[in-house]
Design a protein around this nucleic acid. Structure first.
Lengths: 211, 211, 211, 211
DNA sequence: GATGAATGAGAGTTCATTCAT
DNA sequence: CATGAATGAACTCTCATTCAT
């Protein structure tokens, strides 16, 4: 996670960046443990061992703080998965599908509380008009569309059999989201084992049917 | 939705039952529009056109109100789907699977805002210790386990092919939950069309593989 | 306790009188157990096994109800003690003093929760201006003055020695109030035993000193 | 009244201590004028000329605020009376008794509204189970027991005559409490004059009887 | 940069009272 | 006579935010 720049382009000092990370980490802890509704700035500050005002100083408000938490996870996820996907695509679309499932589940397994926190935030932060700030239809399309396109491309190359790409893309997405929920909620849920099953399942669904 | 009895066994008067329904309806509206966090009793009362105190009079507190909303949907859903499933099972497990998917999606499509509200409530209501009050691991098992059992039984009768029943049960569940999210979020999402695709997809996954 | 008449002079029906007594009894129970502050009309009605509205029907409001509780105890106390005192005075002022102490303590011992409730009410019911409605300086004088007068009369007849009658009257009153507090608070406090000591003590204080 | 430390041992800042004193003073005013039941945080804040939230900021809640008021008076009283009693005991138990009565009444006279407020608080603050939080049987014993012990010791040294020490201790206590009530309620009540009578009275009661 | 103090709005809840039935 | 339903005000408490130091 490289230091981001301020909105006005100025670079943040090292110490400021550290503070922001500290606050974000505390936010993730509190939100994942107590839920968004109970994650007051006071509690976050207490968890971080700092004064309440510091948060207001470093973030424009509660919403911006939460935004940053979401963005962080998104960026982290991309940074983690992008190289894996890039490497896999060289071995074909089936390999890429495996890598997609695998890396997603791996990332979830490695960042359970972060995922839990972001899940909670995304479903709760709303604009003044009451509409969700994140988790919009746009967001969905950014994820579903490329996945569907890759699946369709795999069909074109003959690696995949016949199915509706955009439906399967949604199915895959829902499977991954489902894993996230279970991994967060049930400490006994074995993501690694489930991953094997999931890959096998989607292998069967996408295989070329030569009957 | 028949009138429920009070905890102490006394039956509720007709007028009380009506008020409760009215308040629950207003709650569903407000929660689905503004989210659980913004669904204050004041706003719910305002929406229902009544005074704040009436809610406290008819419900033991905010938590009980929300509990009732959740319970109502669960009961309604069961009442809607149970006969459909019972009828379908006579035609075999494949027919039952079709009916399961179909009735679930139908119910979601018919009760979008209710589904949205309950989804929000379930993810936000917590006990004093910070743990979620609904949406426990138990709840999941109550849904996944019977579904997995039915799938396994279908395998035993030879209607279904080879797959891990409990994994597929989760996949199916996640698909349905995914539909719920989309139906709620995206007004253009065509549940009926998606249903056709979904059934075809799970048909393929469960089909007996004679190759 | 004879039925009182209504303010307008009309007599109350038997059934109405019964209801009032029932409500007052429930009030005493609730106030003595939970304190005046927690003695809501709802709780009193629940204790009496009746609906809230009944109280409003039979009493002009919460204040009047509480007033009646206080009055009842005052009347009961007078009815209990008056004949005892009247009888004793025939045997002289020392006997009357004994009877005064004895009957007061007896009454307290026999009506602990009633005494507790009235004590609580008297210290909490206030007028709109914030001043106590009962327990005024007037009330004190109604009690202290006659007692002091009797003590002075006893001095005049030569039964009592030298002391300030109005100071001793207050001392005696405070002793009795102290017993009430202890009897109410400490279930192990032995009023009968304490009474013996108290009488002996005030006997010594009032005895004619022939040194 | 020296600044107390926080429960966690940290010292309070000067400004915080000042605010707390200000709020406590306002609480005493409001409670003594309007009674505990009418002493809402809103009214206390208004009296103190501050916002409602400030009280919650400086005190853990209403109960803690009231606790502090009670504690303050207790501490102040001890600090006022302790040296007087210590000095007097050198002159014997009779002198100590005089000092006890005298200092108690002096303190009451000097802190009328404080005494009134604490009296009201002690009789009204209750735990969730409905039992009084202060004013327990323990509290009584802490006061009565040492006083009775001192009286008994005075008997052993031959300064006092024959009487039941624990009964007399209660009598004395009740006399003092009675003075507190009168001083609070009746602005014309002359505590200094009454003190003289009281001392003379208890002198007579405790004098060695050489008849 | 960081802090503690203060604000004011809004939360859920309880309550005495009124009133139609 | 009695009830249950409804009101509206008042309560304590929590919160995000602002600001002087």
């Amino acid at each position: 996670m490289r230091p981001e720049n301020k909105p006005d382009g100025q670079q943040r000092s090292f110490i400021e960046e550290a503070r922001r990370r500290q606050i974000i980490a505390a936010t993730v802890e509190v939100v994942s443990e107590l839920g968004y509704a109970n994650a007051s700035l006071a509690r976050i500050a207490e968890r971080a061992g700092i004064s309440k005002g510091v948060i207001s100083y470093h973030f424009d408000g509660k919403d911006e703080l939460m935004s940053q938490v979401v963005t962080q996870l998104y960026v982290s996820g991309s940074e983690f998965m992008a190289p894996i996907l890039t490497a896999a695509i060289a071995d074909g679309y089936r390999a890429a599908l495996h890598a997609y499932l695998s890396s997603n589940l791996q990332f979830i397994d490695d960042n359970k509380s972060y995922v839990a926190a972001v899940g909670d935030i995304v479903l709760n932060v709303r604009g003044p008009d009451g509409t969700l700030r994140f988790d919009t239809a746009d967001g969905e399309r950014e994820i579903i569309a490329p996945l569907a396109a890759a699946l369709a491309e795999g069909q074109r190359t003959g690696e995949f059999g016949d199915f509706d790409p955009s439906v399967l893309a949604r199915l895959i997405r829902d499977s991954i989201d489902g894993v996230a929920v279970r991994a967060v909620r049930d400490p006994d849920f074995d993501v690694r084992r489930y991953r094997t099953h999931l890959i096998r399942m989607y292998d069967a669904v996408t295989r070329k049917d030569d009957r």
